[in-house]
Write a protein that binds this DNA or RNA. Structure first.
Lengths: 225, 225
DNA sequence: TATTAATTGTGATTTAGATCACAATTAATT
DNA sequence: AATTAATTGTGATCTAAATCACAATTAATA
């Protein structure tokens, strides 16, 4: 009798709606894999028979655009990855890579679908997650196009500080090229803006360590010009 | 005994999974409303107790950005509107307006949730719709930022021709300002590109009537530069 | 049908950010 | 520690598209 999911402390909010029997069934159909920074977790264009759940770590969702790779979003622990594939044509429409060391739980797609149809609370949680992500996409879409670079970079720094690390002093795990892909800017422009923030004493940067010195200002830049 | 949904010929794929009793219950909890071009169907920031289903017509989803309204996408008949609100905080996160005369079916949120939990085939269809829309968002996000204006406008024209009107000769129902909001460009730039397409004999335009004269070329522009 | 409002076309000018080019760091590997 | 590879910083130049400005159409309404 496999109790690994029953005993797992990193279950998703959806999985928390499952009863012990369902959790046991889940245990038999899921597999946890560790990834190092930079590892590919899901590959665009490949066939998939799993849903992935990010138990621990930080990943980026990226799509191969016509000219360069675009980072669509950064996803932190506690979210599913590749849900759209589950209900689509089973071919991954985007790639996911580890930005920090990550633990991913791969769940067999059939078992996942069974849980969806047998447990309506489970499926309601999944629906909620999908809806949130749709809204986030819309918002991102507006941000990407209606703010200028300083604002977008300020926004990303704040996202890392408030949402991801919950600290104003952190080691950022993406490089300037990746940040550029995330905010639709060239590496050089990112570098220039970051230098500017340093000069203006808004940030202190040493290598990948970032400390927010003037948060008010940063928030102001993120919101306005 | 209300049979309007049972007899409705414009049911969604999800509603087609409902049995006659469920359809009767739906009939008692839904209301069809007609909208004229330009009418507001869902208002960002307002409280909502309904899910909307677009039975007929064409609408745009738009969000108030910091500087201007951004048209996130055009939605044609056969899709739900405002699903994210259903599972979110009940406050509409975006607006929806009729671009063409439209028929919208408003379904009480509680009845809708009941169907989701009682009928897993129904909920599976809804999940599928949400997933598709997520993928579409990601793709749109890449298109918005990695193609230049000529390509984006060519893409929009093709979307109207192939997906919305299924004809290479149609009356476009959005003006140049709205098209600009849809492809993140100024009204003037849209005008210039359209004139250019006219000069190059790619399109013939008379007022709002558009005829595609050189589709190969248009497709080429949409894909490449 | 006259008048007002909305939409469109096109030139001139400006600008945010891209691209190019190369030096300076920093990190990874032999 | 030495060498190679990856990342970063910054100036100079270029460019697609924004913005400004205003005339020309077209549509809506009194």
């Amino acid at each position: 009798m496999d109790q690994k999911c029953l005993l797992c402390t990193l279950r998703s909010s959806a999985e928390n709606k499952l009863n012990p029997e369902e959790l046991e069934k889940l245990s038999l159909n899921c597999l946890t894999v560790s990834f190092k920074k930079g590892d590919s977790i899901i590959r665009q264009g490949t066939y998939s028979t799993n849903v992935a759940y990010l138990k621990e770590g930080l990943v980026k969702i990226h799509i191969e655009g016509p000219y360069f790779t675009q980072v669509v979003r950064i996803v932190k622990r506690g979210h599913y990855l590749g849900l759209p594939t589950t209900f689509g044509d089973k071919v991954n429409q985007y790639s996911v890579s580890a930005v920090e060391p990550s633990e991913v739980c791969f769940i067999d797609i059939t078992a996942f679908r069974d849980m969806l149809s047998s447990n309506s609370e489970f499926s309601s949680q999944i629906l909620t997650e999908l809806c949130k992500s749709e809204l986030e996409s819309y918002q991102k879409c507006v941000n990407r196009t209606q703010r200028q670079l300083r604002g977008k970079i300020a926004g990303v720094i704040l996202e890392f500080a408030d949402d991801i690390y919950q600290s104003d002093n952190f080691i950022i795990s993406i490089n300037q090229q990746e940040m550029g892909n995330l905010v639709d800017a060239s590496r050089e422009s990112v570098s220039r803006v970051l230098s500017e923030f340093g000069r203006d004493k808004i940030l202190r940067m040493e290598g990948k360590e970032i400390e927010i010195l003037n948060k008010k200002m940063l928030i102001n830049i993120a919101q306005n010009g």
